[in-house]
Write a protein that binds this DNA or RNA. Structure first.
Lengths: 255, 255
DNA sequence: CGGTTTCAATAACGTATGTTACATTGCACA
DNA sequence: TGTGCAATGTAACATACGTTATTGAAACCG
């Protein structure tokens, strides 16, 4: 339960002043809430009031059809902000549910107004975050529309891996991985059975080691090739600084 | 080639002052460009400089894999803004191509700064537009991941229909429709052959009349049911005002 | 601890959608 | 007023993925 992942992410993009740090600290320590695993934080149809910042744990955004078909449309990792300025909208068009136990800080409309008025660097960084999230959603569209089951699954694992690494949540080539096969199936648009087959295939090819709640990626480049993964859409590079794997690791390690 | 569709869209959400109208007018009359049909406006990998406002014509955002597989990830209709503040990013993660002849106005960084500083109502309306576009992208993810070919195609047609209607580009139950079956196939993630089969099925069910470059929707409610279409994600209602079909028509008609 | 639930694995079988190939229509333009 | 190319339509066949069902192994828990 900490602000570290968010600050690290934003500072990757802009340098923040002492005043910037102060307001982020204040915002993320007021109105903290804790949730158990597998519960809804927000339900489709509700009036959005606050923006949720994930301090710890994993969550997901999902939509459901009346007959029960369910699609996970994004994952939230520590440091992720659910939707800057959602409170503009009259009602939610999707639900947000936890995967693990989660703690959040509710960011108020006032916080965003204060940021817009007096913290332009945070405002810029939040725009960058918004644009990256939009790019991720587009990439998911691509993933579901064009990639085969194997490519699709490999691609999703690459994305999660890189986002975790940036948040400082990987160690060496492994990480905690609380998603069940049902979660992965709902995110990739595959049936549970076929997702299982696909994981077996990835394992047999030595591309992943997934057991218990731990994922290891022995050779990220190979997994990326299997998933036709091009990291450009994550926009982890900026201001003319091109990040390779080493610098991303360094960024993830600092703080 | 006009600003009308954008103004109508934004005024659906906020009331704009004379000064607001003035800056929109200025922004959309400077730096106008025209493109032929089937050309790229922006290519993946390029440095984004300006934000494109579509004044007239249809365009799309697409991504491509090395082996040629192509996914259309969104359509742009008149009044659409490609990506508020994209110039924050170092390089584009997708391309934008025209469908028909298109005219655009390039919106500069200065425009957005001016809006943020002195036109808070436009700023709010642009945030709303950004949130709606994000919601549309999520719905496409749902569409590709969970819906069958028939549902998926019907859903896409409903979305385009409602967006066109809001932009004032439908008349009665028909509209111009320049998308080819190849475009629709790339957007729905179906093969051209299967998309064709699916259109035949929609025609046979009397759900659409699609011939030449014209689409008619004899019974929108039935098409919506066929596509399991719930319009909530378009957030066409707001500020406590719940829009039904009639009020949307009225909004589309005014101006 | 023993019972219950969740998650993962595997098999047999079914089908929605993809692929290849070719015919037809329609429209731009010479 | 043909002629050519893009767009649409159709058929035969192939396959990636879905469905249903069953089992075993962990995790949970009263």
């Amino acid at each position: 339960m900490s602000l570290a992942s968010l600050v690290r992410k934003l500072e990757q993009f802009v340098r923040l002043s002492a005043a910037d740090h102060a307001i982020l600290n204040r915002a993320s320590s007021e109105r903290v809430r804790r949730f158990g695993p597998r519960v809804d934080i927000v339900r489709e149809g509700e009036k959005p009031t606050d923006v949720h910042l994930i301090l710890s744990g994993w969550a997901c955004r999902y939509k459901q059809l009346e007959d029960g078909r369910r699609q996970v449309v994004s994952f939230f990792l520590p440091g992720d902000i659910c939707d800057s300025n959602v409170f503009i909208l009259r009602e939610m068009d999707h639900s947000i549910g936890t995967i693990t136990a989660v703690s959040t800080a509710d960011l108020s409309r006032d916080f965003f107004e204060e940021v817009a008025a007096n913290h332009s660097r945070i405002a810029t960084a939040l725009w960058w975050d918004t644009l990256v999230n939009a790019a991720i959603q587009r990439e998911w569209t691509m993933n579901l529309g064009q990639r085969t089951a194997l490519e699709r699954t490999a691609h999703l694992l690459c994305e999660i891996w890189l986002r975790l690494r940036l948040a400082g949540l990987t160690s060496g080539n492994s990480c905690e991985f609380p998603l069940t096969q049902a979660d992965l199936a709902d995110a990739t648009g595959l049936s549970k059975v076929h997702l299982n087959r696909t994981l077996q295939e990835l394992r047999a090819a030595g591309l992943i080691v997934l057991k218990g709640r731990t994922l290891a990626v022995p050779d990220l480049d190979r997994l990326m090739r299997a998933g036709l993964f091009n990291p450009n859409y994550l926009h982890m590079d900026h201001e003319g600084r091109q990040l390779d794997a080493r610098t991303v690791d360094a960024a993830a390690g600092c703080g």
